[in-house]
Amino acid sequence: METIASRALAARKFAKMTQKQAEIASGVKQSSISKIERGDTSRSMSVLALARAYRADPNWLDTGDGPAPWDEVQIRPARDNAHEPPGPYRVTRTPPEGPAFAPQTPGTVPLISWELAGEWRGAESPPRPTLAERWIPCIAHHSAGTYALRVRGDSMTAPHGHLKSYPAGSIIFVDPQHTTPDDGERVIAKLDNDTSGEVTFKVYKEDAGRRWLLPLNPAHEPVRAAFTVLGTVIGKWEDED
């Protein structure tokens, strides 16, 4: 198709539009559309508006260069190609269905469930790929067996900006080889007398031989029952809103 007229007519027909419908969709007057299709005008600022209405490549409609609307989708290589594979580059609160990295990729850790965290033995029992929601990078220095958890509930959401806060949905990285935390460190712990095996995320507190677990949210009560530290939090990832 060597002329704008023939391309404009073919594109409109392919879009299954009358000239009147094209006028409504593009804002170009029907008389102008008719002139373009008759070849009474060789170039027009209306071509871009018509290309949008017809879902056609404006360069093709104007010059004939490029894919026609009925061609298969053609992806032109960029001039500066970084050779990056396609994928999501914006972290969202809803994780992708598949793993972000191949299981056990160096420098990554498994994002696991809270139930699994209660049974975790770190490097002694490396996770099967199917046990992790996905594998994500951990830039903090960490030992083998480190894992990630998605925070649930609001007990570790600080009421003001003077403390680190861990809102629901944020991700924490836990090193299970650090089981003797210092006062004030964030830990994952299991209550010794809780037969359900439930795991909790709190601030570790120690004073004069007494140990307890403190929530950052004052609406929740401290935990003063006997507990076992399963790991220390070494980092956090929080999505942008």
Results as ranks from 00 to 15, higher is better:
Asp62Leu: 12
Ser26Ala: 11
Ala225Thr: 14
Ile234Glu: 09
His162Ala: 07
Gly27Pro: 06
Thr179Leu: 03
Pro69Val: 13
Gly153Asp: 07
Met45Leu: 00
Ser44Cys: 01
Arg90Asn: 11
Leu216Tyr: 09
Ser155Cys: 14
Glu23Thr: 13
Arg186Gly: 00
Gly39Met: 10
Val199Lys: 07
Asn217Arg: 09
Phe227Thr: 12
Val73Thr: 13
Met156Gly: 10
Ala219Asp: 13
Arg52Glu: 11
Asp241Thr: 12
Ala219Gly: 03
Ala8Ser: 15
Ala100Arg: 12
His162Glu: 09
Ala189Gln: 00
Glu238Leu: 11
His83Ile: 02
Gly197Asp: 04
Glu206Lys: 14
Pro129His: 06
Glu221His: 14
Gln104Ile: 01
Lys20Asp: 09
Gly107Arg: 12
Ala56Lys: 07
Asp207Leu: 15
Arg93Pro: 09
Asp207Tyr: 15
His162Asp: 07
Val174Glu: 03
Thr157Cys: 02
Trp120Tyr: 09
Ala25Met: 06
Pro167Arg: 06
Arg121Lys: 15
Tyr147Ser: 07
Pro129Glu: 10
Ala15Trp: 13
Tyr204Ala: 04
Ser196Phe: 00
Glu119Asp: 05
Gln104Val: 03
Ala140Gly: 06
Thr108Lys: 13
Glu72Ile: 00
Gly98Phe: 10
Asp71Leu: 01
Leu50Asp: 07
His142Val: 04
Leu216Ile: 03
Gly27Asn: 07
Leu163Met: 14
Thr232Met: 10
Ser113Tyr: 08
Leu116Cys: 00
His162Asn: 04
Leu214Thr: 01
